[in-house]
Amino acid sequence: MSVQLNSYLSFRDTARQAMQYYQSVFGGDLELNTFAEFHASEDPAEQDKIMHSMLTTDQGQKLMAADTPNGMEYQPGNSHSLSLSGDDETLLRGYWERLSDGGTVTVPLEKAPWGDTFGMCVDQFGVPWMVNIAGQP
């Protein structure tokens, strides 16, 4: 049996919109399950919120997310970033353009001291991203 390490993002009431956005960025299949579907909350205000979602991208990566229930603390922070890296410059630049559109570029996507092209941004949902495009060996 194999093991996977997947990123699982938490939102407050915007998981559906965020995951639909990520599907528009990365393509792939998106599964969305509400609290009502799993009978996971008796709070009527939470029935349509996302209890679990999973995007399986066209490249085979998985990104998961959920809405944090009203009764749980939700504190967005800056201690976590998602990183995309590889040598497919066209694909990675396309991701960069879509992720940074409507967000904030914190480090422009440009040649880095280590020879790669690197940039950092925070998307419109407050999720920090790093993109690293491998340079020529």
Rank of each mutant, 00 (worst) to 15 (best):
D88N: 15
S83D: 05
A40K: 01
E110P: 05
G102A: 07
L84Q: 02
L84Y: 02
Y8S: 08
Q23Y: 08
S7C: 11
T57E: 08
P113C: 05
V122E: 08
A65L: 01
S79A: 12
Q47C: 08
P128S: 15
K49Q: 14
P76L: 08
G77Y: 04
N132W: 08
V25D: 05
K49C: 05
D48F: 06
P137F: 08
D48V: 07
A65E: 01
N33V: 14
D116Y: 10
V131W: 03
A36H: 06
R93M: 04
H80N: 09
C121H: 08
R98V: 08
D123H: 02
Q23M: 08
T34C: 06
I50D: 02
M130T: 09
A45L: 12
R12P: 01
Q136N: 11
D123V: 08
H52V: 06
L55R: 11
P128R: 13
S7V: 15
G103D: 10
Q124P: 04
L5C: 05
Y21G: 04
P69T: 13
G102I: 11
S79Q: 12
D67H: 05
G28R: 02
D43F: 00
S100C: 09
D67P: 01
Q136F: 04
Y8W: 14
L5M: 12
Q59R: 15
P108C: 12
P108M: 12
R16E: 13
S10T: 11
L92M: 03
M130S: 10
Q136G: 09
C121L: 06
L91M: 13
D87K: 10
L9C: 09
G115E: 09
S85H: 11
M130C: 06
L9Y: 00
D88M: 03
G86V: 09
E37C: 02
F125D: 07
M72C: 11
L92G: 01
S53Q: 02
Q17Y: 01
A134I: 05
G115D: 07
L32Q: 00
L32W: 06
T104L: 11
A15W: 02
S81T: 13
K49F: 10
Q20C: 12
A18C: 13
M54P: 01
R16A: 09
W96A: 01
Q4A: 13
A65H: 05
R93F: 02
V127I: 15
D48G: 10
E46V: 04
D87L: 01
F35E: 03
M72I: 06
S79L: 06
F118S: 01
G119W: 13
R98F: 05
P108V: 07
Y22K: 07
G28Q: 14
D29M: 08
Q136R: 11
P108K: 12
S83Y: 13
L30K: 08
T90Y: 00
F11Q: 06
L84W: 03
